[in-house]
Amino acid sequence: MTECVECGADVALHDDLEVGEIVDCTTCGAELEVVDTEPPVLERAPELEEDWGE
């Protein structure tokens, strides 16, 4: 469990968390990027860019 940087609510995290993964804050809906796992640190995820995709 860690805190959403956007709204301050608690964010539940998986055990197999990876740096670079995106998690959603279920309270405010913000997309958060995992920038560290030990301990978990979240930042606001970058906005979608036009050339993203597969």
């Binding site: 197999d16 990876e18 670079g20 993964e21 995106i22 990027e33 995820a45």
Partner: peptide, 12 residues
């Protein structure tokens, strides 16, 4: 990578 999606997690 710049974002780890479920696809990358499966590979990792």
């Amino acid at each position: 990578y710049s974002r780890i999606r479920k696809d990358e997690k499966l590979l990792l």
